[in-house]
Lab assay of single mutants.
Amino acid sequence: TRVETATETAWISLVTALHLVLGLSAVLGLLLLRWQFPAHYRRLRHALW
């Protein structure tokens, strides 16, 4: 049971790290898009909202 718990903890930390990385890359990508294509971003936002 001790090994299982350790594996579970490792998986949880791995998944958390993955989610953090994905979230950060998504935010960075959005910022980059907004910085590179302001007109396109505004049009996209206008279409979405």
Rank of each mutant, 00 (worst) to 15 (best):
T1D: 06
T1N: 07
T1H: 12
T1M: 13
T1S: 12
T1L: 13
T1K: 11
R2H: 14
R2S: 12
R2D: 11
R2C: 09
R2I: 12
R2G: 10
R2V: 11
R2Q: 13
V3L: 11
V3I: 13
V3H: 00
V3G: 01
V3Q: 02
E4N: 14
E4P: 06
E4H: 13
E4F: 13
E4V: 13
E4I: 14
T5I: 02
T5P: 01
T5V: 03
T5Y: 08
T5E: 00
A6E: 05
A6R: 11
A6C: 06
A6H: 07
A6G: 12
A6D: 06
A6K: 10
T7L: 12
T7V: 13
T7G: 07
T7K: 13
T7F: 09
T7W: 12
T7P: 13
E8D: 09
E8Q: 04
E8V: 01
E8T: 11
E8G: 05
E8P: 09
E8H: 00
E8S: 04
E8W: 05
T9G: 11
T9F: 08
T9A: 14
T9C: 06
A10F: 00
A10H: 06
A10G: 10
A10W: 02
A10L: 00
A10C: 00
A10M: 06
A10K: 11
W11Y: 13
W11D: 00
W11E: 00
W11F: 09
W11Q: 03
W11P: 06
W11A: 00
W11H: 06
I12Y: 08
I12T: 10
I12E: 05
I12V: 12
S13W: 14
S13G: 14
S13C: 15
S13V: 14
L14I: 08
L14Y: 02
L14T: 05
L14G: 01
L14R: 03
L14H: 03
L14E: 01
L14S: 01
L14F: 00
V15A: 09
V15K: 00
V15H: 04
V15E: 03
V15L: 07
V15T: 11
V15P: 03
V15Q: 07
V15I: 09
V15C: 06
T16A: 11
T16D: 00
T16G: 02
T16L: 08
T16P: 04
A17V: 12
A17H: 04
A17K: 00
A17S: 06
A17I: 10
A17G: 05
A17L: 11
L18N: 02
L18Y: 03
L18M: 10
L18Q: 03
L18D: 05
H19E: 05
H19F: 00
H19R: 02
L20N: 00
L20Q: 05
L20V: 12
L20D: 03
L20R: 02
L20Y: 04
L20G: 08
L20C: 11
L20T: 06
L20F: 12
L20P: 05
L20M: 10
V21L: 14
V21F: 13
V21R: 04
V21C: 13
V21P: 06
V21D: 02
V21N: 01
L22S: 13
L22G: 07
L22C: 14
L22T: 13
L22P: 04
L22W: 03
L22M: 13
L22D: 04
G23A: 14
G23Q: 04
G23P: 02
G23E: 05
G23K: 07
L24W: 07
L24R: 00
L24P: 08
S25K: 04
S25M: 02
S25D: 06
S25F: 05
S25P: 01
A26V: 10
A26P: 02
A26F: 14
A26R: 05
A26G: 10
A26L: 13
A26W: 08
A26I: 10
A26S: 10
V27Q: 02
V27H: 02
V27C: 12
V27A: 10
V27K: 01
V27W: 08
V27R: 03
L28I: 02
L28E: 02
L28A: 06
L28W: 07
G29C: 14
G29Y: 01
G29K: 01
G29E: 02
G29P: 07
L30K: 04
L30N: 04
L30Y: 07
L30V: 10
L30F: 13
L30W: 10
L31Q: 08
L31N: 01
L31S: 11
L31E: 02
L31F: 12
L31K: 07
L31P: 06
L31T: 13
L31C: 15
L32A: 13
L32Y: 04
L32I: 07
L33K: 07
L33F: 08
L33S: 04
L33H: 09
L33W: 06
L33D: 01
L33T: 02
L33P: 05
R34F: 05
R34H: 03
R34I: 06
R34Q: 05
R34A: 08
Q36I: 15
Q36E: 15
Q36S: 15
Q36N: 15
Q36M: 15
F37C: 07
F37V: 09
F37G: 02
F37H: 08
F37T: 05
P38L: 09
P38V: 10
P38H: 10
P38G: 09
P38M: 14
P38C: 02
P38I: 13
A39S: 11
A39I: 09
A39G: 14
A39C: 03
A39N: 15
A39V: 15
A39Y: 11
A39L: 12
H40Q: 11
H40A: 13
H40T: 10
H40S: 09
H40N: 11
H40K: 09
H40E: 08
Y41K: 08
Y41L: 09
Y41W: 15
Y41S: 08
Y41N: 04
Y41F: 14
Y41G: 07
Y41I: 11
R42T: 15
R42W: 07
R42G: 11
R42S: 14
R42I: 08
R42N: 14
R43P: 09
R43V: 09
R43M: 09
R43T: 12
R43D: 08
R43C: 07
R43F: 07
L44E: 00
L44F: 13
L44W: 10
L44P: 07
L44V: 14
L44Y: 04
R45P: 04
R45F: 10
R45V: 07
R45K: 13
R45A: 09
R45L: 09
R45Q: 09
H46L: 09
H46D: 06
H46W: 01
H46G: 09
A47K: 12
A47H: 10
A47R: 13
A47M: 07
A47C: 09
A47Y: 06
L48A: 07
L48I: 13
L48T: 02
L48E: 07
L48N: 08
L48H: 08
L48S: 09
L48V: 10
W49S: 02
W49G: 00
W49M: 11
W49C: 10
W49P: 03
